[in-house]
C-alpha cells in the first residue's frame, strides 16, 4: 500500500505554546482519515502543514512522494480551511471561477467542473447570488466546492460539515465516500464523534500529539469502550 502522506517528527511552537509535538503519521492512499480532537488540539496546524501553508519548526511532511512545500503538489491537493475564506462581494460562480483559474483550468473544463461541483453541493440555483447573501451552510458548501473544483487526488478538509444541516451532511458524506471509491485520499478534521465513526482510520489528536490511531472498531476494542466518545476519554486518561 502506498502512502499518500508521511509525517515524521513534526513539531511547531507558537511563542511558548507547543502546538505540535513530534507527530509521526502515515496516511494510506485511497482512504478517509479523520483527525478528531477538541479545538486547540493542533488539528488545524497539522493539516495546514500537510498543505504546505504553514512551516514546521522541525520534522518533514511528504505527500505522494514529494516533500512539502511543493508548488506542483498543490495542483493535486484540495484544501478547505476552517474559515470559509470566500470573497463576499463576488457571486458563488465568480468565487469558483477565481479559484479554478488559479489551478489553471481552462474554459470548457472550467465550466464543466464548476457545474459538477456546484451540483454536488447543491448550489446550482445560488451560483449567481453574491456570497454576502449566502447562509452559513451555503458558504460552507461553496467552500467545499472550491476545494473540489480542480479534481484533486488528495482532499484536506478542515471541519467540512460544520454548519451544514443533517440532510446535506449525509449527501456530503455520500459524495466523500464516492470520491474515495474513485481512489482519492481524504483527510478531514472533526470534533463530531458520529462523523469520525464514518472514517476508515481515525487519529485521536490532543495537546499537539496523536494519542492513538486505528479504525473505529479497533480503537473501541483497544480501549474497551462502546463508542468513540468513550475511546477518546479513555485514551485521554491513559495519556495523563
Amino acid at each position: 500500500m502506498n502512502h499518500a502522506i508521511r509525517i515524521e517528527g513534526l513539531s511547531k511552537k507558537y511563542g511558548t505554546q507547543q502546538v505540535l509535538d513530534g507527530i509521526n503519521l502515515a496516511v494510506e492512499e485511497g482512504k478517509i482519515y479523520g483527525f478528531i480532537g477538541p479545538s486547540g488540539s493542533g488539528k488545524t496546524t497539522l493539516v495546514k502543514m500537510i498543505v504546505g501553508i504553514d512551516s514546521p519548526d522541525s520534522g518533514t511532511v511528504t505527500v505522494m512522494g514529494e516533500q512539502v512545500p511543493n508548488l506542483k503538489l498543490l495542483q493535486d491537493i484540495g484544501y478547505m480551511a476552517q474559515s470559509d475564506a470566500l470573497y463576499p462581494e463576488l457571486t458563488g460562480r465568480e468565487n469558483l471561477m477565481f479559484f479554478a483559474s488559479l489551478f489553471g483550468l481552462k474554459k470548457a473544463a472550467l465550466k464543466e467542473r464548476i457545474d459538477y461541483t456546484a451540483d454536488l453541493v447543491q448550489l446550482q440555483d445560488a451560483l449567481s447570488k453574491k456570497v454576502s447573501a449566502y447562509s452559513g451552510g451555503m458558504k460552507r458548501r461553496l467552500s467545499l466546492a472550491i476545494a473540489l473544483v480542480h479534481d484533486p487526488k488528495l482532499l484536506i478538509l478542515d471541519e467540512p460539515t460544520v454548519g451544514i444541516d443533517p440532510e446535506l451532511r449525509q449527501s456530503v458524506w455520500h459524495e466523500l465516500l464516492d470520491l474515495m471509491a474513485q481512489g482519492k485520499t481524504i483527510v478531514l478534521t472533526t470534533h463530531v464523534m458520529d462523523e469520525a465513526a464514518k472514517c476508515e482510520v481515525i487519529a485521536l489528536v490532543r495537546d499537539g500529539g496523536i494519542l492513538a490511531t486505528g479504525s473505529p472498531d479497533e480503537l473501541k476494542m483497544k480501549f474497551g469502550a462502546s463508542d468513540l466518545e468513550g475511546v477518546f476519554l479513555a485514551a485521554g486518561r491513559e495519556a495523563e
Binding site: I53, K72, Y79
Partner: peptide, 14 residues
Amino acid sequence: VSGTLERVLATPVK
C-alpha cells in the same frame, strides 16, 4: 483576515 490569502496560497500560485 478573511483567510482568502491563505486559500490563494494553497493553490500553485507563486
